[in-house]
């Protein structure tokens, strides 16, 4: 069986909104593709990220204050991370974790949190949190994502991941998430990959096709039903 290593980035720091479930869902999605997935927890912010050994870096939502600390901690390996992304390495950032990869986040107190600048994205912390369902059409694959979002910041980007069919997305204007090469940012929670295992499989397929050329898929009935009922509920709100 082919092996895949998922880097779960800073699990004790980035773990809001139940998104640790996405780690489990990635493992299951890998199994559906006939792969053996290994999760490697990358714990220490100042520790060197073993980029050569990781097939995917998964950043889950965290507190904006934590992102500021992480940005500073990552400064010594900023170039390596950039190189990883430029060479097609896969990074998925969910919720506020996406701000870490943007250029800058303006906080309510007027301070600015610098990002890694790998995404052409700026953000402004919201005065009030916005939580709602989210239904998204992905630009590249035309896949649909469904879930919800807890928005702490409004985001501006010229390179969205998709457009909203329902929900606020980046800032209420129709754009959702951001993408640069295989660096993917989405606001969609659920956990993301539990509710949208097809998205997890698509990401993993990109990795394994690039690496191994494997493809297999089993249906996920529970997630299909979850998708249908959530979309039906969203339709009642339009």
């Amino acid at each position: 069986m082919h092996k895949l290593t998922i880097g779960w980035m800073y699990p004790d720091l980035l773990n809001l909104h139940g998104e640790r479930g996405s780690v489990q869902a990635l493992v299951r999605a890998a199994e559906n593709l006939g792969l053996e997935a290994q999760v490697r927890r990358v714990e220490e912010p100042e520790g060197e990220i073993p980029l050569d050994e990781l097939d995917l870096l998964l950043y889950l939502p965290g507190e904006i204050r934590t992102l500021a600390m992480l940005r500073e901690a990552l400064r010594p390996q900023e170039e390596k991370l950039k190189q990883y992304v430029e060479q097609g390495g896969t990074v998925v950032a969910i919720g506020t974790a996406g701000l870490l990869f943007g250029k800058e986040t303006l906080r309510r107190d007027g301070s600015r949190v610098e990002g890694l600048g790998l995404l052409d994205l700026t953000a402004a912390e919201r005065e009030l949190v916005w939580g709602d369902d989210l239904h998204v059409l992905l630009t590249d694959t035309k896949q649909e994502l469904v879930g919800c979002q807890i928005s702490m910041a409004d985001v501006e980007t010229p390179t969205p991941l998709g457009r909203t069919l329902y929900g606020r997305g980046n800032n209420g204007a129709g754009a959702e998430g951001a993408r640069y090469r295989n660096l993917i940012y989405t606001n969609c929670l659920g956990p993301l990959f539990v509710k949208n295992p097809w998205f997890a499989e698509a990401i993993l397929k990109d990795i394994v096709l690039h690496k191994l050329g494997v493809e297999q898929k089993r249906p996920n009935a529970l997630a299909d039903k979850s998708f249908d009922t959530t979309v039906r509920f969203i339709e009642t709100k339009k």
């Binding site: 909104h17 139940g18 998104e19 640790r20 479930g21 939580g131 709602d132 369902d133 879930g147 919800c148 807890i150 929670l189 659920g190 956990p191 539990v194 009922t229 959530t230 509920f233 969203i234």
Partner: peptide, 8 residues
Amino acid sequence: YAGSFYFF
């Protein structure tokens, strides 16, 4: 909204 992520 239909969020239940807290269960995770």
